[in-house]
Design a protein around this nucleic acid. Structure first.
Lengths: 342, 342
DNA sequence: CTGAAAGCGCTTACAG
DNA sequence: CTGAAAGCGCTTACAG
């Protein structure tokens, strides 16, 4: 009775009619209120309010060939980069863009296919790919595409593999405590971050003349950490584990304990991500705090720059990660340099 | 040289010209390939391939007044409901929709404002609100809006507050072990789930004639759990804590230990969420496993049904949560029914 | 089975 | 400062 029910949104023409002007004038009002004579402006203003008019953005996009919307493409799965996304979205919004978050099932191929579709749909002004993609000739797609990873790749060229300095710092630190025999439980190798950490682990072990009892490719889960550590020979002599994330580290600790190795007494364990739970666990996890918001900001800034034809901004994330020492790391059982446990 | 560079996408007219037909025919081909005479179809097929034509979706939307895109609105913040989103998105995709994930800073008000904008932008066919919103007269917005919470509300009407049975089960279980004095560290009260758990906690304590040393409104963080437990008087006699999530539970355990209360010897602690880290922590966390994917599926099914004018499907999530007993819970110090510790 | 025409709701030269 | 006209790329009656 009093409720008008759902109403068709009003159009620019209806506003124009009510205001007694042409729809051209209303459009102009929308672009720049000051381009109208005050008297006209007031009439239009009134009509817009009265009808609660909001321009149809689809129509506007069709005309302007700009959609003011970006897409962020990422791998579907349990590792949702929430903080990166939040930071990136916020900046995009401030810059006047809406952002589509497109989570794609499947591997790099699937993501690339999806990106092509998005690019050619006419619905998107630019794309940020967070998870790795398999895309060549992006140029042809006609809209800017920024890969979050390309930053890592750039660092790689500079000899500064992303995450490299932290892995080095961790191993050097453990080595300085007397650890000589290491083990790495890697993350899902589809992720560039997991591959990087693994490579730098191997490289650093080699460079420092340390020993590695192996590397196991995990899947970021606690179970993979548990399984990896419990599968190790009892006499392997490992005293330090570098886990690719905190969840794995937790699994490693639990697995170690199940075979009588106490952390950090017998085994030191490093995680990655500085998750809240790891901070309150016992032992609390030594880990790497990652500024994911900075990563998100960085990536979106690069995309916005490219959309506007500006040069790529300097990455700010070179030093945002830092290593945190907590209770899960300590000197090895014998700190005299021998690692022949057993 | 060999790279053609970025190319303007081709239009339906160009395809028509190349195929030697009218653009109407091309459009028809796009809708239903079988509506063309085989000979024509082949010509169009060829032209579409040759030009790698993809229809401009913005133009299509303008014409059809359908966008085939949904928006999922949620609160910005650290608690990104990744699994719900993934499940919901997948189903939406299968149904032919793209989904925008819109994370909004601020409270229910801000989200409602954003939802209004989305609804009237002409860019969205339907909206799913995951976090609580403050919206009346949604009818007027002209597109279907489903609130993930409305399901909870419906249960509430039925006397089945969401999460209620689990909280009851937890308390009854602990009570059966001999616990008499409880404590609840709640989650951020902006979340319906946090409010529900708190209400049912209070209700159940009362109904069973148990004692509560209080409820503290936390913010889902480990620190809030730590602070809550350490702030308790030493002689309060609490032997069981219901934490609103696993992170809080972890903080509670750490805090308890810091004041000499061992878990579960002196204190039993229940979490919520069944996070991977809690499973591998020591003690491992008793918790509630939540089928977040089912929640996401449920919500999106309701939205799709509403868009298509079908009756709301039956919720499937009534029994998807289940309580998991692990090492963080045990009988109280004296299981004889007295809880006067100290 | 196919084509010519109208129109979705805007913006943007072009005149005045 | 304002308006009439053209057009963005499609789809969908309407004829044939």
């Amino acid at each position: 009775m009093t409720d008008p029910g759902d109403k068709r949104p009003s159009t620019i023409h209806e506003v124009a009619r009510l205001a007694g002007v042409s729809h051209t004038t209303v459009s102009r009002y929308l672009q720049d209120k000051d381009s109208l004579k005050p008297k006209t402006r007031i009439k239009v203003e009134y009509a817009v309010k009265a009808l609660d008019y909001r321009p149809n953005l689809v129509a506007r996009s069709m005309r302007t060939r700009r959609t003011n919307r970006l897409a962020i493409v990422l791998a579907a799965g349990p590792h949702f980069p929430g903080q990166q996304l939040a930071a990136a979205s916020e900046i995009a919004h401030q810059a006047g863009y809406q952002v589509d978050i497109v989570s794609v099932e499947g591997g790099p191929r699937a993501r690339s296919a999806r990106i092509e579709d998005l690019a050619r749909s006419g619905q998107i002004d630019g794309i940020l790919a967070i998870s790795s993609i398999d895309l060549k000739g992006a140029k042809r797609l006609g809209i800017p595409i920024v890969r979050s990873e390309s930053h890592d790749e750039k660092l790689h060229v500079l000899g500064q593999l992303a995450g490299a300095s932290e892995v080095r710092e961790i191993i050097e630190y453990l080595s300085s405590l007397g650890h000589r025999t290491f083990f790495h439980v890697a993350g899902d190798q589809e992720f560039a971050s997991a591959r990087n950490r693994k490579n730098v682990y191997l490289e650093t072990i080699e460079r420092l003349g340390l020993r590695s009892v192996g590397v196991v490719d995990g899947d970021w889960s606690g179970q993979s950490g548990f399984d990896a550590i419990t599968a190790l020979p009892a006499d392997c002599g490992v005293t330090a584990v570098v886990a690719a994330n905190d969840v794995i580290a937790m699994g490693v600790i639990r697995g170690a304990r199940s075979r009588g190795w106490e952390v950090p007494r017998d085994l030191s364990v490093f995680g990655w991500d500085d998750e809240d739970m790891g901070r309150f666990a016992t032992p609390s996890l030594s880990t790497v705090a990652v500024d994911r918001e900075a990563q998100g900001r960085d990536a979106i800034y690069r995309l916005l720059a490219e959309i506007n034809g500006q040069p790529a901004p300097e990455p700010s994330v070179l030093t945002v990660n830092h290593v945190i020492h907590r209770e899960s790391t300590a000197p090895p059982p014998q700190a005299d340099g021998r690692s022949e446990a057993q």
